[in-house]
Amino acid sequence: MSQSSSTGNFDVASLVEDVNLRRVAQYALVVFFLGFFLVPLETGIMTAIKTNESVARSLPFAPPVGEGFTLGNIQFALEQLSGSFFNSLIMSIPATIGSVLFGSMAAYGLTMVNWRAQMGMLMLFVVGVFVPYQAVLVPLARFWNNIFPLARMIEPMVASIPFFQGYHAELVPLVITHIAYGIPICTILFRSYYQSLPNSLVEAGKIDGASITKIYRRIILPISKPMFGVVFIYQFTQIYNEFLFAFTLVTGSDAPAAPVTLVLPAIGASTSGINFGIRMSAAFLAAVPTLILYVAFAEQFAKGLRTEA
């Protein structure tokens, strides 16, 4: 509007005509929701860079002024979180790669290869998506602690890897659990993509003499790159943010192998009350890896789509 008013042929009548009640309401709604979603975020960031005193005295969303500004909170949160960051990443990266890769393989086998009982197998995968977390927690803990104490078995081995400590072995059962739990949903996501691919690609591969596994590795896997981007983002976010399995298998925020999601609730809380500055800083720091992934993979994803077309 302001642009058109600067040009010569400015038409007041049409402007008035444009401003009807419906449009006004539409814009009002947009502005309202923009504020609704952005203000908490802005408040969080402002709180993260304020001193305790400033948090208590100024409005929550007001920026810090003068001595109210500090980077101390972020620094402190980073120190507190650094160990659990490492834990989270070495847990969620292999778990994501595992579940995405296995999901893609399963989807290929269930969609593009013909064999008996395919439908029944697919139904099992679908059911797997709906198994509630709560129902498996106790059996899961008993399995990894009593029946098959994998963490204890491989502890010496893990301790001998550089940069790793013995307690990191506790993350291995968690990785396996996440892979197992992630495969059904990944399979179903990939399946819909593979169903859209022409079957003649697999047939051409067969006639060219390639085995079923070679067709997957050399034809289907490279073609599904864009889908990998999508599923990888989704699955990484799921696993990185997951709390319940981590809490069950690693137990407690003070465990040395605790991932970020376990440590986060404990940061900034003490007997003297809650330090909001530190809490907010930690929360934003914890979100950084997923944000980085979104940015990095979004580009890769778009590129993948372009080369496809």
Binding site: P198, S200, L201, E203, A204, G205, K206, I207, G209, A210, S211, I219, P222, I223, K225, T307, E308
Partner: peptide, 20 residues
């Protein structure tokens, strides 16, 4: 005999070229 072992080549209507 599976398609892989027949030593037969086929040209598809859709060509089925590997896009990547």
């Amino acid at each position: 005999v599976s398609a892989q072992d027949r030593d037969i080549a086929m040209v598809f209507q859709s060509y089925a070229l590997y896009p990547h």
